[in-house]
Design a protein around this nucleic acid. Structure first.
Lengths: 119, 119
DNA sequence: CGGCATCCTACATGATACTG
DNA sequence: CAGTATCATGTAGGATGCCG
């Protein structure tokens, strides 16, 4: 296996989590999926600027980390649904916290901008 | 200004936070700084594989986002101290949550590895 | 000590075309 | 519909050298 060693004095657990949820599109994908089960094209439409390639890649990474599950329905046309796994559910509080923090951060920045806006 | 528009229907606040703390070394840097004020070389020594260039760059980004403060002492030899800003302090609960989540995640993975270890 | 400027490479990402 | 394969490219990041 190739997981970090928790007994390493320099081991930083924060890195582990950020490595899993910190990909370029992961925040957006999780933000979608943690609200409702979604199909591939549904995600593709909801996240306009993502390429099929990147969407696939990031979904596979999240799946490999056990954060989301991928359910394939053997039918024509094909249907694949993505949802948060049990372990992924444990991320929800963190995702919510990130969202709340961002909002207050953006508010603070907006106020700072207004304060220095000397037009 | 160039901040995201919170009124955009596709605006995802999670991205904002991850964009700020999600850099390659940011987790590690914040993990260090949120514990104690640190000097540049102290960080450089604590995070062995980071280059000076990257450390500087990431510190400047965190500073630009108002997460950390940079205090320069005009003396020979120079002395520069980095610490969490007031706004950065509000990140601590999130950093702690990320850390706790990582630990339980790694535990779960370790157990899964043991369970499938058929040697 | 705490940087910055330059150069260079590797990987992440994007665009496009094709498929079961 | 939900991908894969291939090619092109931008940028993040590393190595090195110089400076106040």
């Amino acid at each position: 296996m190739s997981h970090p060693a928790p007994d390493d004095p320099l081991f930083c657990p924060t890195e582990t989590a950020l490595g899993i949820i910190g990909g370029k599109w992961k925040g957006m994908i999780l933000w979608c999926i943690c609200r409702k089960t979604m199909r591939f094209n549904e995600l593709h439409r909801t996240i306009p600027n993502i390429s099929q390639r990147m969407l696939t890649k990031q979904l596979r990474e999240l799946e490999a980390h056990g954060i989301i599950t991928r359910e394939v329905f053997a039918q024509i046309p094909p249907r694949v649904e993505y949802r948060l796994s049990a372990h992924g559910q444990s991320l929800k509080p963190i995702l919510d916290a990130l969202e709340n923090w961002s909002r207050s951060y953006l508010n603070a920045v907006a106020e700072a901008d207004t304060a220095t806006d000397d037009t």
